[in-house]
């Protein structure tokens, strides 16, 4: 008899669910990982996503979904422990390292990710990406922010507004 796997309350193989991206790619993941999404959790609790049926996610493409699932799989054990009160410092440091590396990606992926996280109600992922984008904004001047985030060049009207703002709030630009 095999020893029960740690963290698995089902005494056997973990329950799997299938998610289908907008471009019709099927992803099979553990229900525990998919349940990080509040939206999916309800469907899964109702018994959805198993067997041959998949849960269609018409707003999330396969590239984004695979990234979302990478996050969920990594974070599922800690989430299963109810925010992991007994997690070791090493575990937490490892998750932090993972998070930092995870958001070290192309900006357009970041924006797709935060929209998917919002859509699927994965709060941890949503705030992780929000913080990353905020990190790209902080400490910069308006022009630097525009350049960093790939805004088009300001129109003369926008430039005039920016100048007026900087004149009024000069103290914020020193």
């Amino acid at each position: 008899m095999a020893a029960p796997e740690s963290g698995d309350g089902n005494n056997g193989a973990a329950r799997m669910v299938t998610l289908i991206s907008s471009d019709n790619t099927r992803f099979e993941v553990e229900a525990a990982a998919a349940s990080l999404s509040q939206t999916l959790q309800l469907t899964i609790l109702d018994g959805g996503g198993g067997g041959g049926d998949g849960i269609p996610l018409p707003n999330v493409d396969s590239a984004t979904l695979s990234k979302v699932l990478e996050y969920c799989i990594k974070h599922a054990p800690a989430a299963a422990n109810g925010g992991a009160p007994n997690a070791t410092a090493v575990d937490r440091a490892e998750l932090e390292r993972f998070d930092n590396e995870f958001v070290n990606i192309d900006q357009s992926v970041l924006y797709s990710l935060i929209m998917a996280a919002h859509n699927l109600e994965i709060e941890g992922l949503q705030s992780l990406v929000a913080k990353k984008v905020a990190d790209m904004i902080k400490g910069k001047s308006p022009m630097e922010i525009r350049r960093t985030l790939g805004f088009p060049d300001p129109t003369p009207e926008e430039q005039a507004e920016m100048n007026a703002h900087m004149l009024e709030y000069g103290w914020a630009y020193e």
């Binding site: 396969s62 590239a63 900006q107 357009s108 924006y111 797709s112 929209m115 985030l149 790939g150």
Partner: peptide
């Protein structure tokens, strides 16, 4: 499928 999908070009203007 991943290879065929063109790189997504979501920008900061797309987020709600």
């Amino acid at each position: 499928a991943a290879a065929e999908v063109p790189p997504s070009t979501t920008s900061v203007h797309d987020i709600p």
